[in-house]
Design a binder for these strands. Structure first.
Length: 309
DNA sequence: GTATATGATTCTCC
DNA sequence: GGAGAATCATATAC
């Protein structure tokens, strides 16, 4: 059984093979003929060389992997105490949490480990299979080692997304757990009466503009033994609820009789020509700290204003 | 058990 | 980023 003698005939056989219907028996017989042809290797070498020199419909270069998102996910997971395979374990936070939360986090950790380990296994299998298929094709097509390497890179590139998705799921899981276990709404306690009095006193003292400065917030936080954030929350809630309360009062008054002016507190200082009333009438008893929030009023020196103490 | 109060969170707007 | 508004989740009063 002899194959085609010249390179031209060999090429014709290969071309014929690519055009014909996929009848397996015929195809295998043709492949055997081509393999045993003494010019086969030489032809392959020439075709590969030519391909290298004349790029035919070159593939677009793989875009460099944008791993910013993955890094962000890694950082978030390690900050929550999750060991991300492949990341520096010394960065993993050691946080003391309640046992149930820790147990749930361990589950997240195990799932992530399993997914990443399965990924590496699948990746190796797939790369191997793709390489084999390409190598077999290489007998009849101009495929170089560079092509095989490029294809392998492409497989890795695509599969990297799988790991990113696994990390994304873990992050979402941790976020959900934090919401369940660490939402302060679930463990909130009312502030002490003393703290509430201090906050209310400040609010009333600055009723025309109840927006404490950062310095005041810090001082209020210190006195109330709460955080500055809690002070901000308290004033945010207070302002909106106070506003609603006034609106409600107004509408209730309006239903009973003619519209009334906004309920206001007698302000002797305003009556006496001061720009703003000091909050003396709201000072709760037994609250020495409170005095520092009382605005310091310098009586106007201009003629026509007089203050009697 | 229900209504209301209250502290925290989230979303939107500027 | 801060404030307003809506909403959630719990505490408290009844």
């Amino acid at each position: 059984m002899g194959g085609p003698a010249s390179l031209a005939e060999l090429l014709a056989e290969v071309t014929k093979m690519t055009d014909m219907q996929l009848d397996e028996n015929v195809m295998n017989s043709l492949k055997c003929q081509i393999r045993v042809n003494p010019l086969h290797r030489a032809m392959q070498s020439v075709l590969v060389d030519n391909k290298e020199k004349v790029p035919i419909s070159p593939r677009p270069a793989l875009r460099p992997v944008d791993n910013q998102n993955e890094k962000m996910l890694d950082n978030m997971l390690t900050a929550e105490g999750i060991v991300v395979p492949g990341c520096d374990p010394s960065h993993v936070a050691d946080i003391k949490r309640e046992p149930d939360f820790n147990r749930e986090l361990n589950n997240v950790q195990n799932e992530l480990n399993q997914e990443i380990s399965a990924y590496h296994k699948k990746k190796a299998e797939l790369s191997e299979n793709v390489s084999n298929v390409i190598r077999r094709q290489g007998e009849f097509r101009p495929i170089s080692n560079k092509d095989i390497e490029s294809m392998s890179n492409m497989v890795s590139h695509k599969l990297q997304k799988v790991i990113e998705c696994a990390k994304q799921r873990s992050c979402e899981h941790v976020t959900h757990l934090k919401r369940v276990y660490m939402d302060a709404r679930r463990t909130r306690k009312n502030f002490s009466r003393h703290s509430t009095e201090i906050l209310n006193a400040y609010f009333q003292a600055h009723i025309t503009h109840p927006y404490p400065t950062e310095q005041d917030k810090e001082e209020l936080a210190r006195q109330c033994n709460i955080s500055v954030g809690q002070v901000s929350n308290w004033f945010g809630n207070k302002r909106i609820r106070y506003k609603k309360m006034l609106a409600k009062e107004k509408s209730e008054n309006g239903q009973r009789c003619a519209p009334q002016p906004m309920p206001c507190i007698p302000n002797p200082y305003m009556m006496q020509g001061y720009p703003m009333a000091p909050p003396f009438m709201f000072v709760p008893p037994n609250m020495p700290d409170y005095q520092q929030f009382v605005p310091k009023f310098e009586p106007p020196t201009t003629a026509g204003t007089s203050v009697s103490h």
